[in-house]
């Protein structure tokens, strides 16, 4: 049984404080849904857990099995069992999916994986995600459709077998059929590895397929409500307004900065 614990997490991006004290605990075998209006810190929380260099933890801590990982590098966190399925996966030209995945698998093994088991695992995962057979030889996410990129994220999750998977809007860009395929692959890993899932999604349909055991609502950088799947259903039916009013939360809209026109005049010193 593993445990990912976030305590009083405050996170800044450049000069702006995005998270203002978030606490939650995710255990193996649990599925947590992280919901909330756009721009209120859900992706920031996931990126901060993964150790994105642009996100600075100013207060609080992140523990994996009671060991602080706040100061660990991104790759250390990954090797320790964290996986972030990204909202916008990067396209990396020149690096094939096969070379990348082999390197990623080998990064967490003492002995490099032999070619045959790797090919077998890659082929099985490709089939499971309903992707084309040439995937292994294509460059990482280059020229992929939005849906292909999301499938490829989950294919990586299948092969890397994380302890905790953080999935950031992994359902966006997927059609109804693809959503079922991806959900099924996520649930297979969840069952086989008994991993914990922290899922950000705006769609009730996804939570019907991957049913959360816990639901958290994040607004204005704090968790304002928690519950079970019925909370996600309520939000899906009625939206966030009522919930925000009940908890006295007012979403501050950032004033758009006035666009300054440039000048070609030379300034006098």
């Amino acid at each position: 049984m593993s445990r990912l614990t976030i305590t009083d997490l405050h996170v800044r991006v450049e000069d702006k404080e995005i998270l203002k004290g978030v606490s939650l605990t995710l255990k193996s075998g649990e599925i947590h849904a992280l919901m909330g209006p756009n721009g209120n810190g859900k992706s920031t929380l996931l990126a901060a857990i993964m150790g994105h260099p642009r996100y600075t933890v100013t207060q609080g801590d992140i523990f994996l099995d009671d060991v602080s990982i706040k100061d660990w590098s991104v790759d250390q966190r990954s090797k320790a069992g964290l996986f972030l399925g990204m909202q916008t996966p990067q396209e990396i030209s020149g690096v094939t999916n096969a070379d990348f995945l082999k390197a990623a698998i080998n990064a967490r093994r003492e002995q490099p994986i032999a070619l045959f088991p790797f090919i077998k695992a890659m082929e099985a995962a490709t089939k499971k995600l309903g992707m084309k057979e040439d995937l292994a030889h294509r460059f990482l996410n280059e020229g992929f459709s939005g849906g292909e990129k999301k499938r490829n994220e989950i294919l990586q999750m299948v092969l890397l077998k994380p302890k905790f998977a953080l999935l950031d809007e992994i359902d966006s860009g997927l059609d109804v059929d693809a959503l079922k395929v991806v959900s099924s692959a996520i649930l297979d890993v969840y069952k086989e590895e008994s991993c914990g899932l922290l899922i950000v999604s705006h769609y009730g349909r996804f939570y019907d397929l991957v049913t959360p055991t816990h639901v958290h609502v994040l607004a204005e950088g704090v968790i304002i409500a928690e519950g079970d799947k019925s909370l996600a259903d309520q939000i899906d039916a009625k939206g966030y307004d009522l919930l925000l009013k009940q908890h006295g939360v007012e979403i501050k809209k950032e004033r758009e900065k006035a666009q300054l026109l440039g000048t070609c005049a030379r300034s006098k010193k």
């Binding site: 590098s73 991104v74 090797k79 990204m86 967490r108 990586q156």
Partner: peptide
């Protein structure tokens, strides 16, 4: 670089791969 590192590659491993 962050993307590659998020899958467990160190900075050196990521640069070698690229």
């Amino acid at each position: 670089l962050y993307y590659l590192q998020s899958r467990g590659l160190s900075e050196s491993e990521a640069l070698r791969l690229v």
